[in-house]
Design a protein around this nucleic acid. Sequence first.
DNA 1: AAGGAGGACAACCGCAAGAGA
DNA 2: ATCTCTTGCGGTTGTCCTCCT
Length: 239
Amino acid sequence: MGRAPCCDKAYVKRGPWSPEEDATLKSYLEKHGTGGNWITLPQKAGLRRCGKSCRLRWLNYLRPHIKHGGFTDEEDKIICTVYSTVGSRWSLIAAQLPGRTDNDIKNHWNTRLKKKFLAGANTKCLNNVDTINKDVNNGYIPRPQDEADSYQYSNSTSTACLQDCHVLDLEPATTKMPTEMQVSIFDSSVMSYSCSSKEVSNISTSSAETSLAEENHHTKWLDQDEAILLDFVYDLLNN
DNA sequence: AAGGAGGACAACCGCAAGAGA
DNA sequence: ATCTCTTGCGGTTGTCCTCCT
C-alpha cells in the first residue's frame, strides 16, 4: 500500500494558473491567511487546486515583494559564492537574496549560471565545488542524506533560515574540515577565491567551544555562527 | 512564413522531516 | 513509541517563447 495522495487528482486542476485563480488565492490569503493548513485551503478558498500547488503558487509568485527575472551581477555573484559553499541548497541560497525564491534561483542557475561558469576557464569555480564534494564523499563532512547523521552538511556553512540550532553528533566541524579547502568564494572579477579551512574554522570556534562543554561532546550550530560566516563571505566579496 | 531547436520559466512529483495525536 | 498528516525541499518535467534555418 503506497502513500495516500495529498489530494484527489481527478478533481483538482493542474497546469498553469489563470489570473482568476491567482486573484482568488491572493484574496483569500490576504483575508484569512493559510489557517495553518494548506491542504484544506483550496477547498475553503473555492479553488480546484491541490494544497501543495496553492502553496507553491503563493510562495513563488503571488507573495508580496517577489522579484522575477533580471538577476543582477551582484546577485549572480552571491548565488555562485553560496552555491560553491553549500551546493544546491536552493532554500539557503534564496535566504541570502531577499525577494528571490528558491525556484527562481534554481531555474536561473540551471538555465544560465551553470553554463556560464562551466564554460571555458570558469571551470575553476566548479572544480572547487567538486573538490568540496569529493571531500564530503570521503567522509570529512557527511551529507544530510546520510540518515545516520543528525549533523547536517549545511551546518558548516550558512543556514540562516533553518532552525535555531542543530545538534552535531560528530566531532566539531573545526576538526573535520578538509585540510585543503573548505570554502571557495566565487568572484567573477578574479574567477574565484579560496580560503583555508583554518580561516573558516576560526569563525565558529567560539560557539563550538562553548558547545563542546555540552553533553556527549555534541556541538550546536547556532544562528550567530551562520551570520558570522555570511558576514565573512560578504567581506570576501567586497574586498 | 513555417517549423524545428533550444532557452526560460512555471509547475509537479516524491521524499524526508517535523509536529501532534 | 508509533503512526498519520502536513510542510518544505530539491529534482524533474511540461509548456511557452524566441531565435535560427
